[in-house]
Every structure is written in C-alpha cells, then in structure tokens.
Design a binder for these strands. Structure first.
Lengths: 252, 252
DNA sequence: GATCATAGTCGTCTGCCTGACGATAAACAC
DNA sequence: GTGTTTATCGTCAGGCAGACGACTATGATC
C-alpha cells in the first residue's frame, strides 16, 4: 500500500472515560452534562480530543485529572497512594456515532475510591456520580426530576462495556482494591465486590478467601471501627495483581 | 468543549491484524513483507487504512478477507462454518509509532484453523505464517537465512498483546475451537491448547474436562483416524461460549 | 497374522477449594 | 448489663483437578 496522504480520510480521535467508584453500596459512574449540541443538556461520559503530541494513555490521564483531580496510579510504585487505576477499554468508531464528523473514540476505564464531589471545569452542577443502574436503563429517570439516562452518543454501550470489564476483572485480579482507600478492612473490600457484582457474599468465606490468598492483602497492624461493630484489621493492597485461584462470582 | 473543527488534529486510523493459527504444533501468526518505506523489506502485521464509511470491525474483516480469504464467523450462527473469530484487541496511538504521520491503529485479533498458504494480494512470497516465538524474539532470525524479526513499527508489541489475549481467553471460553476445523477430535483440541500455551497436558484429564463441560462439544457421531491410533470421536463446537469452571493453565 | 507403536477412552484416588453455616469476640447504644 | 453490629475462627460435605493405572482400537512392521 503506497504512501499517499490523500489515500486515507482524516479522523478525529477522542478519549472517553468510564470512571467507576463505589458509593453508598452502589457502583457509580462519573457523568457530565453536555453544554453544546449535539445532545445538548444530556448526560455523557467525560472525554475530549487527543492532542497532536499526546499518547492515548496520556490523554486519558489528562482528562481524568481535569474532571476529577485524580492522579493515575503508577503501576510500578507500591499500591499505597490514592491514585486511580486506568486502563484502555475499547475503541468505538462507527461512522455515524457522532453526527458532526468522523470521530473514533478510544474509551478508557478508571477505577477510583469514593471521592468528594466531582468537578467539571469547576462547575459541580455539570458533573455527578450516578449509579450505573440508573445510567444504563433505557430512557430511565433518576430519583430526581431530571433524567440522567439515556446517555449521549453511544456512551451507554461504552459504559456497559466498562462495567462488564470491571465486573469480570475483579474476579481474577486484585483490582477491587482500586475502589478502596489506601487502608481498608476486609469488610470494606467485601462491600466493593458486593456493589460491583450486585450480590451478597458470605462474610466468613470471603474473609477466608482474601486473607488466604498470598500477596493480596498486607496487614498494616492498625485496626478501625469506622464500620461499627468489632474492630477490624486494616490492610493495604499487596503486590499480587493476579488472583489464583480467582474470586468466584456467585451464579446468577 | 465547544465544537471547533480546528481544535483537534487530524489522525489517520488503521486496523492491524494479529491472525493466529496452529500449524505443526506451533502457534503461528500471519506476517506480510513491507514493500515500501518505512521499514521496507521488513515483516509486519497485515493491516490498512479504515475507509471513510466503514466501521472498525468492518475494516478489520475486509483486511482479513483480503489477506487470507477468510470470512469472519458470524457469532449468531451455529459454529459450524469455516469462518474465523475476530475481535478487537487494543488501540495503539503513540505519536511516534509511525514516522510519516500521526497514525492510530486499532488492532484486531483473529483466530483461524490451519489454512492453505496465505496470500498477500496474490503474491505468496510476501506473506507467510511464522511461529510467534520467532516473530517475537529480539532481532531473531528464522531458520531460513531471511530474518523475520523484529517486526516493523510497534507490531511486536501488538503481536505480544494478541498472543497474550489468546492464551488467556482460551482458559475461560470455548475459543480454542476457532483454531480447529469444523469437525475435530478431543486430541486435536488438546494439541491446540498445548501449542497456544506451550505446555503438555494430560490427555486423560483433558478428555474428562472438555467432554464433561456442558455445551462445549457436540458429538457428530462420526469418527476419524487421521491422527493415527484408535479411532477418535468427532465433535463440533457447542453453543457454550464461556467455560465455567475454566480450563486451568498449568503453573509455569 | 502376530506384534508393536500410537492414540483414545474410562476409572480411581487423593488433596484442595468452596459453599453452607455454627460459634465466638469485641466494639457501641441504650 | 443487654442487645446489636461487625469481625473472625472453625467444621463439614461436595466438587473438581492432578496423578496415574488400565483397557481399547486402529495402522505399521515383521
């Protein structure tokens, strides 16, 4: 295939972000309100154009910082900062996905601990955490009068893909700790699994499983009663990234 | 972010293909020789520009057909045609990955049964199946005088990612059957796993596992002795796509 | 045709892991 | 103190995987 600049059509390339967190026992995603057409006033995933000199991962990290203030967790550093996990999710390039022009969007998935209120260019009313369940229901309405679904563009599909990735990935990796603060209890980690999977897990078997998997959790020595009840040990995420054998998601 | 056509840089978007098959007990990938600079004469993954009116998956399927004649397996149809499996792999967009211009490549992964010789625009000498082991070794040389590695651009990374995806995906899905002809024996399927993982598996335990997983294999009633030895039952791929519990890849 | 080599198929046994669930421990609220 | 909540330890039975023995049915070789 000879090199001919006129032989290929120009594309715009964007990154869109599926930013997930667990709030009040529910899996939530970050949504921003669109200020301009198309889909003006509708909610969408945060994102933006990739710059000319920027790698895709850099662009995603920049957008994440702009929208949430989160820094991306450095995979080479020990897992103790408050950074988020960020990974590429998939790329969406239907010719008609954006009515203005040909846009290819490289979606990324970010997992973050529960955070203070989001910000979108400083305007909090234009950014919010919403339960993915609300965001994904067809034409659904949030508890408020204002509808949060359906999302603009093909963002419902992107969000669904991101949620499915998160649900499956916490099975065989230690990624669920990305939803937790730097120090957390076994019970808090269990509530993450329960929120992401939407199931109830047996606390005793869960405790046995996670404490028995080498490298998953490292006790810090401290305890906390912030969940009430008997004081619980505090842990940090250990060095292991892959869980073998995996956590098993209960049948349906 | 207001809509301003001058606010974003134009990109070229390509699809690159990691086409894997199992030949002579080795996992092989399709490579094509580059006819023009950059990297003229070097081997690379097949691929090409996405057209203006084309979806990414369409572009990948078109390139696959152009390079191999393979049709993409329709996921909704019963798994009995000779079509290949095709899925999106990841997107590579480093600003310097192509010295000519800013190119974002959406890599796809294709799995195919062992095929007759490949073709590249009809010229067989410019396309070949090569063991991934040879393609991935740093500056390695094939058995012939002609070096097949390293691949052009960042294609070694793309290939490595594709191989890793295939290796992990056959653990928990029935995708290994995509490497087999429409009818195959348990032993042939086992040799696929052995080639992809590069390990030896116990024939008896493997047989018990695959025949005991509901929906994985459907007996056709026929038998064959094409592998020598006692006649073996022939099977087709069943409807199940996810294996639960998964096939376990032996420890190192 | 007997023997051998090659694959395929069925069973057995043992150890590990999981799910179900009882019991105890340590905090707080009243 | 009593009750409630959460954490943690223990027990037991069932299922599955790894190791491996045994038998079967072909083609190849003598």
């Amino acid at each position: 295939m000879p090199y001919d600049p006129s032989a290929f059509p120009p594309f715009a390339v964007t990154v869109d972000l599926v930013v997930l967190t667990v709030r009040r026992h529910a899996l939530c995603a970050l949504a921003v309100r669109r200020g301009e057409p198309p889909f003006q006033g509708r909610w969408a995933l945060p994102g933006g154009f990739v710059r000319a000199d920027e790698d895709l991962a850099q662009a995603a990290a920049r957008e994440l910082a702009e929208e949430t203030g989160l820094r991306v967790h450095d995979p080479s550093a020990p897992a103790q900062d408050n950074g988020a996990h960020l990974e590429q999710l998939a790329t969406y390039g239907d010719p008609k996905r954006d009515p203005r022009m040909r846009v290819v969007s490289v979606a990324h998935l970010a997992l973050a601990p529960d955070l203070p209120a989001p910000r979108a260019g400083g305007d909090a009313s234009n950014a919010r955490w919403a339960p993915v369940e609300e965001l994904l229901q067809q034409g659904g309405y949030g508890r408020e009068a204002e509808p949060v679904a359906p999302l603009a563009f093909d963002h419902a599909q992107i969000l669904a893909d991101g949620v499915e990735r998160a649900r499956s990935k916490i099975e065989y990796s230690s990624l669920a700790t990305a939803f937790c603060p730097p120090e957390f209890t076994v019970g808090e980690l269990r509530r993450v699994y329960e929120a992401v999977w939407g199931v109830a897990l047996d606390p005793r078997n869960f405790h046995r499983k996670v404490t028995g998997t080498p490298g998953f959790l490292v006790p810090t020595g401290g305890t906390t009663t912030r969940q009430g009840g008997r004081p619980a040990q505090l842990f940090r995420a250990g060095g292991a990234t892959l869980l073998n054998p995996p956590m098993l998601r209960p049948e349906v």
